[in-house]
Amino acid sequence: MARIPLRKMKKNQSGTITAVKVGGEMGRRLREMGLVPGTVITVQGRAPLYDPVALRVLGSTLTLRNNEAEFIEIEVADLATDG
């Protein structure tokens, strides 16, 4: 198992959120959408210019900009990180 920022995840990779390291409005917006520790997410794809990223969270699809994804730390299985 390894902990990486969400921004570094590859397409179709899944993982569990371990921390959301931001407060203020951004932190609140991320949390109210269900991005809290323990939530499982899957990277569903990226926009044509590689940013924003689309995630599958709790059965719905969310989009985040890369600079927002930076604050989210994910625990992923080792295998996928170097895939």
């Binding site: 409005e25 917006r29 959408m33 719905s60 699809t61 969310l62 989009t63 985040l64 900009r65």
Partner: peptide, 10 residues
């Protein structure tokens, strides 16, 4: 900019 966090509804 305000956070982009947005839902892509089905």
């Amino acid at each position: 900019s305000t956070p982009f966090v947005m839902e892509l509804p089905p």
